[in-house]
């Protein structure tokens, strides 16, 4: 099944499982982020996406991968996404030996694959990963653009199209989970926040198919609930959740109920806060 191909850069590698972005992922730009990203990519400057959960970071990267693939004349721009978790180690990213019928076999990790094919490698929630991953990130994000593969005794020079993009949520910032400055200062940072009400309504309407009024109401709900941030709620309601609620509404669930299961209950377990959010919901929706 594994097929050996030659990449445009000339490296001999195994076929990567590519993330193939066929249709244009919907993304409504709020500011100049598209232009920024394109320029950064052209200059091969690594990008850090900052912002709360569900604000559209991942969607933005997907959109950019598609956009770069289509506007730059390239057939496509592979995007390799790694969701980082607290047990994610360097070898999870680089690769490892696996046992085979005849002994051991080296398997590239996602980062190695991205480096080889010249893909965009997107490390989601990078602060969650183990500190040893920084060993990999650092040489890749400066002028060297190198990936050391310790166990093989190799160093891979990245393919030209490669770019490292990481994301991080300052919301759960704690002393333990902050990004080190030596890491942080290797990226340009694009800040994401929940979109303003009108744009958010547009996004909700587009993603779910609800009518404009409902979308506006949901966006209003989002705005109001976000006022409760730091007060009973550690995170405001994400655009993603609002879209889910909108989809429920669009498919026949009564709005109040849809907001209850889609927003209120997903946000918090605190009964009092739940009740307060519910009151906001009942004020907005009939």
């Amino acid at each position: 099944m594994a097929e050996v191909i030659t990449t445009p850069a000339g490296a001999l590698i195994h076929q990567v499982e590519e993330y193939n972005v066929e249709a244009e992922p919907y993304y409504l730009p709020i500011g100049d982020e598209i232009e920024l990203f394109e320029t950064a990519y052209a200059q091969r400057i690594p990008v850090l996406l900052k912002g709360p959960t569900g604000a559209g970071k991942t969607r933005f990267v997907e959109h950019m991968a598609w956009r770069l693939g289509h506007t730059r004349g390239e057939q496509r721009k592979p995007l390799i996404t790694v969701a980082c978790h607290e047990d994610l180690t360097a070898s999870d990213l680089v690769g490892r030996y696996l046992l085979d019928t005849d002994g051991t076999k080296w398997v590239d990790g996602p980062l190695t694959r991205a480096v080889k094919v010249g893909a965009i490698c997107y490390l989601d929630e990078v602060v969650e990963a183990r500190k040893d991953t920084t060993v990999l990130i650092h040489p890749l994000t400066d002028y060297r653009r190198l990936l050391p593969v310790e166990k093989l005794g190799q160093v891979i020079e990245s393919a030209d199209g490669f770019l490292l993009v990481i994301s991080y949520n300052p919301g759960y910032q704690s002393a333990l989970k902050d990004l080190k400055h030596s890491t942080r200062q290797r990226f340009i940072s694009i800040e994401f926040d929940y979109p303003p009400k009108d744009q958010e309504a547009e996004i909700i309407a587009h993603e779910s198919g609800v009518d404009k009024q409902t979308a506006t109401d949901l966006a209003k709900l989002g705005e109001k609930v976000r006022n409760l941030r730091e007060h009973g709620l550690s995170e405001g309601v994400s655009t993603r959740l609002l879209i889910y609620a909108a989809r429920l509404i669009h498919n026949g669930i009564p709005p109040r109920r849809a907001c209850q299961v889609g927003v209120t209950w997903s946000l918090t377990d605190d009964q009092e806060v739940q009740r307060s959010i519910e009151e906001v919901v009942t004020s907005i929706f009939e």
Binding site: K224, N227, L228, H231, G232, E272, S276, I277
Partner: peptide
């Protein structure tokens, strides 16, 4: 009171 407090905070964005 607490429910209404959070409710008003949500509406106004003020503490």
């Amino acid at each position: 009171g607490e429910i209404l407090r959070l409710y008003c905070k949500a509406l106004t964005g003020r503490n």
